[in-house]
Design a protein around this nucleic acid. Structure first.
Lengths: 199, 199
DNA sequence: GGAAATAAGTCAACATGGCTGACATAACCG
DNA sequence: CGGTTATGTCAGCCATGTTGACTTATTTCC
């Protein structure tokens, strides 16, 4: 109920525009608003709405598995970049190891991820998705891929290059090399026959 | 310490690529991966990284005020669309009123936002930023605007139109009209001489 | 070889910001 | 007047983030 479209656009009552009481517009406020500034804020809002809906897709599926967004993020990166270390994951997600620990423990416990000691440095715990994990990861990714594909199509030809450069530039400058190398690594979920975990 | 760039790209040990144990690559996995699929997932990751850093900017400032991201979102929309109703905010943020209540109460209590009854429907509580609220909102927006401006520039000419269409298409189809009308309303923080709040 | 550094795990406590359910109040609408 | 609507609120729960302290392997370096 209550279609915001109506309500916000206002037809029954002069909503915005004239705003309540005094329709004045500058007791002192309304700074320079450098013009492009307004446009930038529009992009900020669009980004918010886009990301809001982008993340809600998998949330629904996750609930059926008793997982949350945190699990999704972990599973995604482990699946896309199998063999990464715990430290890598911490760096990607920018959370504490205690936080990661909780969700990772659950994913491992339920057989979606397995770890194995690094071969050159046995202190490292390398993370791999199980078949089960791979399946779930793909199922979670599916709706997001569809959404992205449609949005790219709607954006028009040539949008991909623009978008890629835009997104890359949105990342903190110091982080860009990390991001590049992360995305360069194991572009396809490499297998490793990581089973077990189950019973 | 520990520069992930090095670690993930791997120079001391053959990290990804060959992955740990068996460098094989298809005990049965590696599905069709429809090619564009991989590209789409790259965009998904880029979006994650971009949004991750985009939101961390204001987080730092917020801490100084004892606020969190939730406060930022509320203040942003109240500032950009002064005079919106509580119901509008709920619809935008897609959270429950109990959730909103907490942060809104704090923002009002500390004098960043004021409410006043709607003039045509006095049940409505219309929200307005105070001068103080406007200042904080702008301060929070500043780093994000800079980031967006630079990213748009880096994306190259013509990117804006592509990006706008892309972001709009990322929003749930049913939500698009709402989003449009929201963004159309009060493009500039309309004033209303909403003071008080203070002492 | 042994000390220091590193990778990971863990316990405990706490903060934030979501959620559900139940209910209260005021104002509008027919 | 009675039903619906907009908002607020109490109470409790859950997910996920944080800090700080400490243990255990293992590697690295003198």
């Amino acid at each position: 109920m209550t279609d915001l479209t109506e309500t916000l656009a206002g037809d029954k009552a002069p909503r915005a525009k004239t705003v309540r009481g005094k329709p004045r517009g500058n007791g002192r406020a309304r700074k320079r608003t450098s013009l492009p500034e307004a446009k930038l804020l529009e992009f900020a809002e669009l980004l918010f709405f886009a990301y809001r809906d982008f993340t809600r897709d998998p949330d629904v599926i996750l609930k059926d598995f008793g997982f949350g967004r945190a699990h999704h993020r972990v599973l995604h990166f482990v699946n896309r970049h199998s063999g990464l270390r715990v430290a890598d994951l911490l760096d990607i997600l920018t959370i504490t190891k205690q936080s990661l620990s909780r969700v990772l423990k659950q994913l491992i416990g339920k057989g979606y991820i397995v770890q194995r000691a690094g071969r050159s440095d046995r202190r490292e715990r390398l993370l791999f998705p199980t078949d089960k994990g791979r399946v779930l990861a793909e199922r979670l990714a599916a709706p997001q891929s569809v959404r992205l594909a449609e949005a790219l199509k709607a954006a028009g030809p040539g949008a991909e290059a623009h978008l890629r450069r835009f997104l890359e530039a949105m990342v903190n400058a110091e982080e860009r090399p990390k991001v590049s190398s992360i995305m360069a690594a194991s572009p396809v979920p490499l297998k490793e026959s990581a089973q077990g975990g189950g019973s």
